[in-house]
Design a protein around this nucleic acid. Sequence first.
DNA 1: AATGAATGAGCATTCATTCAT
DNA 2: CATGAATGAATGCTCATTCAT
Lengths: 216, 216, 216, 216
Amino acid sequence: MFEQEEMLIQQLFDEEKLTEKQSKILIAAIESFSEKGYASTSTSEIAKKAGVAEGTIFRHYKTKKDLLMAIVVPIMAKVVGPYIINDFDKVLNQQYDRVEDFLRATIENRREVLKKLLPVVKIMLQEIPFQPELREQFIDLIAKNLFGRVSHIIEGYQQKGQIIEMPALSVARLVITSVMGYLFSRYILFPEAPWDDELETERTIQFIMHGLGKGE
Amino acid sequence: MFEQEEMLIQQLFDEEKLTEKQSKILIAAIESFSEKGYASTSTSEIAKKAGVAEGTIFRHYKTKKDLLMAIVVPIMAKVVGPYIINDFDKVLNQQYDRVEDFLRATIENRREVLKKLLPVVKIMLQEIPFQPELREQFIDLIAKNLFGRVSHIIEGYQQKGQIIEMPALSVARLVITSVMGYLFSRYILFPEAPWDDELETERTIQFIMHGLGKGE
Amino acid sequence: MFEQEEMLIQQLFDEEKLTEKQSKILIAAIESFSEKGYASTSTSEIAKKAGVAEGTIFRHYKTKKDLLMAIVVPIMAKVVGPYIINDFDKVLNQQYDRVEDFLRATIENRREVLKKLLPVVKIMLQEIPFQPELREQFIDLIAKNLFGRVSHIIEGYQQKGQIIEMPALSVARLVITSVMGYLFSRYILFPEAPWDDELETERTIQFIMHGLGKGE
Amino acid sequence: MFEQEEMLIQQLFDEEKLTEKQSKILIAAIESFSEKGYASTSTSEIAKKAGVAEGTIFRHYKTKKDLLMAIVVPIMAKVVGPYIINDFDKVLNQQYDRVEDFLRATIENRREVLKKLLPVVKIMLQEIPFQPELREQFIDLIAKNLFGRVSHIIEGYQQKGQIIEMPALSVARLVITSVMGYLFSRYILFPEAPWDDELETERTIQFIMHGLGKGE
DNA sequence: AATGAATGAGCATTCATTCAT
DNA sequence: CATGAATGAATGCTCATTCAT
């Protein structure tokens, strides 16, 4: 698990070369923030868990909030953003013949990411309401990128008569919340229930497909 | 707004007779917890906002956490729980001829509640991950009551052949996350977007109905 | 035990007529002060133990320190003072033929008093260093009354050639600390050791008598 | 006086190397605890007197009680314990030909120690009744070490027929309380009276020697 | 007389941050 | 670069005391 987390860190933060101490600080901070919340985690606790001196944290991150941002911003910038965009680009380029296949791939992809980055995602969700900077980034990302892109695709399918006549934004909302609802139930609400992931993925896809079908 | 909040408080906490000071403390705490989070709100701040001495808070609520619980537990116990159950009882007693009508009434009802209790619901969602007591109550409520009841209804409809063959639990998840996803988008994510509530409600219902339809 | 304590209270405080609430407050305060110390006992704790409202304490005793004084001053005034004086008066009036008999009676008398008033005596000893008012009273009592009287008696015996030639004050100190040392060991230091009181009293008397004897 | 106290501190706490701030904190704490009692001394007061920030106290002593223990435990462990034992070892090894000489040396030694450590001894005596940990240590030290050693010596003298036939424990009690009674009168009760220490020491020794003599 | 809600100063303790080494 | 002692403002909480009922 430690090795796995380290890889996660390397993956999330690779661009800036991290020293070993910095990695340890980030891992410790992610673990503590995720377990007890940002406001209830003390920097001294992080220092102890990371095995560094208290002052060392502040050499790398000017304030505690900077440390939080160093954790959460990359997730927003790299994970929620481009990953999604890459996927969609594949769809837009007809790499998936059917919507089902796109949904399946997307869900699977999201699932993998969420499983690995769960602690960071938890921190992000917790702190978005209280950090205006995060909030704005998030809204932008969701509103402009995610909804925008999805809406675009949807309008395509609607013109081909394959899905229901409904404002693309509403369709986007329905699809996204269905997918997110699944992932949220799966990993946040009931992570310990016995899930048959393949089956539930199919059911979710089926539900969405029917839900968007022209009915009758 | 103040008057409105006071009514909210009265409604949530009516059984125990609240003194004026207690009401003021609760209102101030709800406002602050909702805006800045439980851990980042100081009791002195609440006292100042409520216009009482700091000691007064601790006369009524032995600890800061007790104050939090006094706010969140009733919401769980009274609002999420029985309200839902009452609605479902109506369905079970055939008060709604069609699933659509039931969904419509439920969504509308939830919408009203959420609109009024938004700050408290926000606090609840924020603190569930960090307060084991809340977490357990919530899981119980959702898992045993909400999912249980909904599953029961679903099985009824499935026997009548009106909805798709799929484990009731999965159906329940899909329906509930669709409804919650709507309300979450509407009130938490984009409360300031221009929403046509009646229309979106219908679209959500339509989506769910088709999604659960036997397809073709 | 409760009844016994009530009698103690009545005995200590009889002159001012105490209401039932006052008695309860005093008993509760003595118990708490004795167990946890004056400074570490809160008035609310006393109120709860006494079964009265917090305000009631302050109706009878203007401040917490007044309550302490109401407990400790009578002990000094009535118990340490006059009792001793009465005993000594008996000696001075030749009611005891031999010093031994006087010592024996005095020790026995002190022993009874100490057993009953132990909690109050403990409080007194604890607070004397910190309450100048008490300290002065105590020094006066010990220095002027106790030492004074004893010195007077001692000088008598010295003139009769029955005890050693030594300043009366020094003799008084030796006698008093011997007696007090016994009682202190018996009731404060090792109250739970198995003591044969009669025997130890005799030994103490014998030690003092020899110690004051003309040697040889 | 400041220099003297610093030496005291160095003597009491030498093994662990104390920083300058730690010394200042200890000196300030000893002064305040001794004057006003542990419970009535606030940490902010100690900080101010020591000329350090309040947080500094808690960096070195996790709680206020830890600070108390850091002051009192070494006194029990180092001063009351080994010093006494060393003295007795000298007696046991026949370094003193006569009991008188032993008593004289012991009293003198105790007197020096007490004079220097008076504030700390005061704190110790004050807090023993309320700190179970201290109480146990003290009882152990007195009961098992002091009384045990003294009893052993006494039995030796009794076998040589030099002192009275009486259970060694009782003899020990009489001797110890006589010595302690002198020191207590001298330094705690009437420190400001004019004492001729040499003379009073001799009188106390004489009293004990006669008291334990075979009478006649 | 008795109550107990209300007060606000005070307390022990924590914490993010700084800085000399 | 890294350390960790030092800081002092802030925090949750307690307490003796007051006062309207």
